[in-house]
């Protein structure tokens, strides 16, 4: 039986699709059978983030409307043989799918996968409700910014009302330098405000942009600090105890070169 995990956020542009792609990839690298479902009908993007946009023949709406079978619509990943993507339809809108359709789809895929990750659309309307309808677990992505945290709180309320069990929080795009200067909300502050359990903290990382440019998940890049943070979240999902990454200030260039010197002096 697959664990069905929906990644949602309320506000757009906070990293739902990046999170879904990286968590799915990390889980598949640990040997899990993973299906990613893009539930953002009409604004699909998980395909391009995964670098699979050229292989789409059928999509989610084709499956729901009976033009294709689940197996025909699932696209095998380029690198990981146990990971598949179910793309969203691009030329339809969210009314093409309802909650029962999503539940039926997840039920049909249940036995073939260990994890089904659903990339939710932004907002709190039907697209979001469809995306959480079939979930056993919900992950809410926020950045440490006022509009994003506010929208996340709305979604927390809606998820709690839907009796899915408590959602867990991913704080994305943290800039440790700004946090230490008191110009960005810290992990502790965001957790205190939203009052839900965090499952991961992800620092801002330029590698995410270049990875997305290439259509490869950042977890493949050992140099990517965000990739490592997503890998940590995947391990926590698997039940491992992984300490949270330290989000206090990363050393700047000067400090990295002369850090030892400064520290020795500070002690003296």
């Amino acid at each position: 039986m697959a664990r069905v995990i929906t990644v949602t956020s309320g506000k757009g542009g906070v990293g739902k699709t990046t999170t879904t792609a990286n968590l799915g990839t990390a889980l598949a690298r640990y040997g899990a059978r993973v299906a990613l479902i893009d539930a953002d009908i009409g604004l699909r993007n998980l395909d391009v983030v995964m670098g699979l946009e050229n292989r789409i023949v059928y999509d989610l709406v084709d499956v729901i409307e009976g033009r294709a079978r689940v197996r025909q619509a699932l696209i095998k990943d380029k690198r990981l043989p146990e990971m598949y993507l179910m793309p969203a339809a691009q030329t339809r809108d969210k009314d093409a799918v309802n909650a029962e359709d999503m539940i039926a789809l997840a039920n049909e895929m249940h036995t073939d996968f260990d994890y089904i990750l659903i990339d939710s659309p932004a907002g709190i309307e039907s697209g979001f409700r469809n995306a959480i309808a079939c979930a056993n677990e919900v992950l809410i992505v926020t950045t440490p910014e006022v509009p994003s945290v506010r929208d996340a709180d709305r979604v927390v309320g809606l998820v709690e009302a839907s009796e899915k069990g408590p959602p867990r929080l991913i704080i994305n795009r943290i800039k440790p330098r700004l946090v230490s200067r008191g110009e960005m909300l810290s992990v502790d502050e965001v957790v205190e405000i939203l009052a839900i359990e965090p499952i991961g903290v992800v620092p801002e990382d330029e590698v995410i942009l270049s990875s997305t440019n290439r259509g490869e998940a950042a977890v493949f890049n050992a140099q990517s600090i965000a990739g490592r943070a997503f890998d940590d979240i995947a391990r926590r999902l698997r039940g491992e105890e992984v300490p949270f990454m330290d989000m206090s200030e990363q050393p700047g260039v000067l400090e990295r070169w002369f850090g030892g010197l400064f520290r020795r002096r500070a002690k003296a």
């Binding site: 910014e145 006022v146 506010r150 709180d153 946090v179 110009e183 960005m184 405000i193």
Partner: peptide, 19 residues
């Protein structure tokens, strides 16, 4: 005066009003 502190106070107010 730091903006993170201002953000936190504003959020705490706006969230409870939202709810």
């Amino acid at each position: 005066d730091r903006s993170a502190q201002v953000a936190k106070e504003r959020l705490l107010t706006v969230l409870v009003h939202d709810r």
